[in-house]
Design a binder for these strands. Structure first.
Lengths: 201, 201, 201, 201
DNA sequence: TATGAATGAGGCTTCATTCAT
DNA sequence: CATGAATGAAGCCTCATTCAT
């Protein structure tokens, strides 16, 4: 008698709509009307499934985080080799070009960073995601060089990743195509070597 | 009888107003009225000195770029030591904490990156600035390891800088305070060492 | 085979839902969804049992009127004493504090008065109820002082009752608590005395 | 050079627009568009002079209160006679029909009472006005019968006034036309007589 | 009967831009 | 140059009502 709920499906559509529109319009300019259109739904329906626009954005943050986590997990499982190879795998999960590269998601993520500056709720969600990723990387790095220096090294590598996101989105063509993953892995190698040789100091 | 023009002064005030407001509201939410208030001027006057809102943003991009260029120049002049020390000086100009560190400008720059995603004119201005900085760094790096690998290395280091900007603004407290400059310089050392030892390959 | 209709029960639930919501949100802001939630039903069902929102309100008017009529009837039956005691009983039915006092209903009634200003159908329903009550009071008053002055006196007493409703709802704490019934009965005494002594004039 | 401000004039127009529209539509249904139209202004301009719709309502409350205060003051100044005559004058200021009677304001006031039920800010403003009027009446009554009973008597008379407002607006034609002021004054007489004869009890 | 999705109109509010003074 | 009023176009959100299931 009761009508089966399709809310989850609709929410998915809407979040994907935001992703698409946001990648080329930014968040503020991504109007509910446009998001709805991109999702193939009516504008009113968007507010039936989401209390407010920001909630769509927060859901998207979760979703993007989940996808990356998935990619990291997959790559780490495939890794043969020691702790250093795991660090590389982690970095590849973020930067490797290939079929799972997703420019729209990267653009959305850059936009989200900027929104985090001014929307406390977005900042909280963003921080949570970044903290988790950062701690994961720190753990992998720590397995190579020990706890003490792991944090700063992880932060540096993660910053490089985020920086490539920004540059590839906001100024495409300025960074040598396809070089990101390799360069960051070389940075990692340099930092890890230096730290290892200092260990015990 | 004509009174002396104060246009340049007014434009300065307005651009600084945008800088202040943008750091906490983003660009879209920085209304002309608010910018004017932050500048201590009336709303109408803003459009007397700038044709449209975007023009203020473009002027701000130029200005921020100019300030950094100044800081780079100053630090390079002070450097004693070789090509490697110059690379470090360049990186310090962007990341060193100290009296010339300016969180509002960094926040504004992060916002500008996001706006570059959706406004062609902003993107052009952003790209121009990034290209100039990148080429400068590439030149400094090239002096150490040669032309061939300079581009990718410079891009990597520059990405790390931009990434630190994003993280320090959007997720403050997650990166070890004060570690940015040191870490990026260590990254530089690692990349330069590796490249030097490979040179001629 | 046909299941027994529960329409009357459902309508009751819905009307009570409106009563509850209206007391704190007013009529306009009492959305169908909220009314349904307060009634423990789904939103769609509300429109199965009522053609439109206004119909719920009109039903509520009838219901509130019915309850008061009941209370008046009960109190009049209990009265021992003459015509004056009946007037007092009538007033007590509206104003006496005690277990049958119902702030939510009073608040709803105040809201209904305001809606009567702008909705002709509500005004008609409101007028019908007020007219009946007023005529009843006029009759009781007339038994004491005669027809001629009964109307104005009844109107005055009824106005005082309505005024206490408004004040107790919209500015609670400003009228001495528990004094309403006593004061209006004293007003009645004064008016009836004065009229009686003038009778035949 | 600076353009002279006409804000006060515009605010007046807008508040009067709300008064007119509210008298026949209620507050919720009085859209900004309609208010603007009634004021002969554009909708956007309304929000240039008032931060939000509620602010117009609060301003109207103040204004209506001011007008009544004025009328009370005028009538009290004209009064020859003692304390009782002053009570009558006060009641006349609210209820007397004549050129200063203003049905639209009365209707607005009834609507305001209902809004006070659900909007805290409106309630605060409403309470403030009612408290002031009530205290004034209490003082006048106290001059006749002493402090002890003044409060309840004043509240009763004030309630009767408010009740007449409601009835005359929401159910016009049910109260004998022109009888309100006379009846309430008779109520006052009755209450004051009774209290005086009891004084010292 | 009952559910909950869907629609579409309309409301409040914000804001870049224009313009009279 | 400067002020501040004025406009008009969106944008977000709410909601009564309809409808497929």
């Amino acid at each position: 008698m009761a009508r089966p709920s399709n809310t989850e499906e609709r929410r998915q559509q809407i979040v994907q709509g935001l992703l698409r529109v946001m990648a080329e319009r930014g968040y503020e300019r991504a109007s509910i009307t446009e998001i709805a259109k991109a999702a193939g739904l009516s504008a009113g329906l968007v507010h039936y499934h989401f209390t407010e626009k920001q909630e769509i954005l927060l859901t998207l943050v979760e979703q993007l985080a989940g996808r990356v986590r998935e990619r990291v997990k997959t790559r780490l499982e495939r890794v043969k080799g020691g702790a250093r190879a795991q660090v590389d795998a982690f970095l590849d999960a973020f930067l490797a070009t290939g079929e799972d590269a997703d420019p729209a998601s990267v653009a959305a993520w850059v936009t989200i960073s900027a929104e985090a500056v001014r929307q406390p709720e977005v900042r909280a969600a963003y921080e949570k995601v970044v903290r988790a990723d950062l701690e994961h990387l720190e753990e992998l790095v720590g397995a190579v060089i020990g706890r003490r220096r792991a944090r700063a090294v992880a932060a540096g590598l993660f910053a490089a990743v985020q920086g490539y996101f920004v540059l590839s989105t906001a100024a495409p063509g300025l960074t040598p195509p396809g070089s990101a993953a390799g360069t960051v892995k070389r940075m990692a190698a340099g930092l890890l070597d230096a730290a290892e040789s200092q260990e015990g100091t």
